[in-house]
Design a protein around this nucleic acid. Structure first.
Lengths: 230, 230
DNA sequence: TCTACAATTTAGGCATGGCTCAACTTCCGC
DNA sequence: GCGGAAGTTGAGCCATGCCTAAATTGTAGA
């Protein structure tokens, strides 16, 4: 009988950490994580996911009901949040301390998140003043691994005339980030929906003094906090 | 026939990079690297080294003469220097920018050196002003992978009465580093050998205004630049 | 209810990078 | 010049984490 291994992330392989993170993501989005969705997210075959899920289950990180997908255990959730904390701290650090642009940091963080010791994590968090959001507006789990979940509607859900603050966008699409960055549209920016064209058409958005034309896909990726009508 | 893979370090596995670095180290010390010495340095079995050397050879990183150890090819040397540059830049960065102590940075750098992209390497080098030595006094290979080799005798080789500047010590012994750090003895410090006890006994060294008693092992690990007799 | 199809799991392989054990050079000292 | 120690190699094993192909299960529609 093998002892259950300790639950902290740094004892686990990078692959296991990636699975925990992916399951966490899907769980917060859909309530559960299916084999197929995990395979798509991690860009591996479903059969590989099946194999890994058996391993995660043996590690006590997930509950696996055959043919029904998985859910993280409390321990699994801690592992996922630890990795997410690493990822987002690194992203912010690269922007703040090294001047990297916000479209480059995701790929770097994807690697560095697994190479960070707890000591280094703590030094970085201190250096940054224990920040609560990363450069894309995603919340950073606290040292105690509490995550401030925020509900933020997509920009695409606003009605013409509504104003809002841009609060968050996925870090996974460098091209989108570059596009927005070039126009000065970053989290914190005040936006105002001027007009939306029908049939999933582009939005006309006032930001930074100019009116920008943003495609529907982009407008669904951008999340905002409503400020009330004008 | 497989194409020879590209020579740059970031395409190679961490294990291969570690071997290249270890071979480089042994080569500069002994002129060549034997399987047994590599095994000792990397803390694996000689048989495992044999297997990996065949692989390095197939990658074009080493010339392997049976029963004669290996030598790095030009390409292998570049890989080793790239990894060493990463390692030493990271060490200095952790000390300078994050306030980590010099006895902790080796272990961190050992992991991070493999996770660093070329872009990040460059940003760190810039941030540090393209430094030429790491916190332990080891030279940092330049961007073009030129390494300024310096001959520096061990402190143990000084004669009583000689003065010298402490220039370098291995990063691999945290306990030594802590011991010296607590006494303010870091590279750049001016030392003066007061007395040496016979039979490989301790040395009495004046540094930072005090006379310190340093064991023979420590005195062999510390490298100095002579300043002339007093 | 049955059946088709999509989702999932199992079975069997492959590459990496370790390990042990056993056998084989090579070299050095006598 | 020969025997043994040091050094080297090959054969075969293990775990990780991915793959493809083939079975199995669950479910939704006729």
């Amino acid at each position: 009988m093998a002892q259950l291994p300790p639950p902290e992330a740094h004892d686990l392989t990078a692959a296991v950490q990636d699975y925990a993170k992916a399951i966490y993501t899907l769980e917060s989005r859909d309530g559960a994580a299916s084999t197929t969705d995990l395979a798509a997210l991690l860009e591996v075959r479903p059969a590989s996911v099946s194999g890994m899920l058996r391993k995660l289950s043996a590690l006590g990180l997930v509950e696996h009901e055959r043919y029904r997908g998985v859910r993280l255990t409390e321990r699994g959730r801690r592992v996922a949040l630890e990795v997410i904390r690493h990822h987002r701290l690194v992203e912010l650090f690269l922007v703040e301390s090294l001047g990297m642009t916000w479209d480059e940091v995701h790929a770097e963080a994807e690697v560095l998140e697994h190479a960070l010791s707890e000591e280094l994590e703590e030094l970085i968090a201190e250096k940054l003043g224990n920040p609560t959001v990363d450069p894309h507006g995603d919340p950073i789990p606290s040292r105690e691994l509490k995550l401030a979940e925020t509900e933020a509607p997509a920009l695409a859900e606003l009605e013409p005339g509504e104003a809002a603050t841009f609060v968050r966008i996925s870090d996974a699409e460098p091209a989108m980030l570059r596009f927005l960055g070039e126009r000065g549209i970053v989290p914190g920016a005040r936006l105002e929906l001027v007009e939306r064209q029908p049939f999933d058409g582009p939005l006309f958005v006032r930001a930074c003094g100019d009116v920008h034309v943003l495609g529907a896909t982009l407008a669904r990726a951008m999340h905002v906090q409503r400020e009330g009508k004008r």
